[in-house]
Amino acid sequence: MTIRKNQANLTAAEKKAFVDAVLEVKRRGVYDEFVAAHRLRFALDMNTGVYVGHFGPSFLPWHRKFLIDFEKELQKVNWSVSIPYWDWTADNTVASSIWAPDFLGGTGRALDDQVMDGPFAYSAGNWPINIQVDSRPFLARNLAYRVPSLPTRAEVDAALAIPTYDSAPFRDGSAGFRARLEGADGYLSMHNRVHSWVWGQMESSVSPNDPVFWLHHAFVDKLWVDWHKLHPTSAEYLPAGATADVIDLNETMPPWTSTTPQNMLDHTQFYTYA
């Protein structure tokens, strides 16, 4: 059974196992397929205005499936590995251990935002950026540059208190838990703000190039789980059906050919959160 843990509680051995598995998935060429899938999804969403991966209700189940698929690839390398989650309300500074050289490495240098330490530094040779929207071949970050702070626990709690998953028109500014958590009802907030706080590739459509993407989205996913526990009688996903240009509960989420939001509602068949 896959148990996702708070990254702050990982042992040194667990951190190393995760990093090693990520590096091996990268070496196999599979990692970049995930980056490319994210870039393609984002571009298609933007071009068509049908928001599948972002800015719509399927943001949460789409990323849940994306993480499950990635976690499976990690586990092909090492069955004991799971995706840790990063509680950015608690570990919310550039000095947090998540950015230490024994885990994800730190912020980039001033010159070009290039990450210079840790296993994903360009100089280490294992982390070329191949799937791009700009010419930087290295992992880039500028922590706390664009926005000085990460979302607070109070902001998270306020989002969790919203009893409705999502509402019409099921887009950027919709009222409800999903848009509030995504940060799409006021930009530079919540999930979106975390991407901007990290900067570099995390701010772009190739954000999975930064391994922190997975830890960030595991926490976002955990908050969906937490929200459902707080509102057990609320529909865990909306809309239920017949909504044009929106992924309904039983509609397939591309690029998958048979995965619907409904298929994603019971996460415990795939993993649990410690």
């Binding site: 940060g183 701010e203 954000s207």
Partner: peptide, 20 residues
């Protein structure tokens, strides 16, 4: 630099995809 308009919420680009 591809830019996209998203209704009233504004413009985005692939370089800064999580803002408007």
């Amino acid at each position: 630099l591809q830019v996209m308009k998203h209704g009233k919420s504004g413009w985005s680009s692939p370089i800064n995809h999580y803002v408007r």
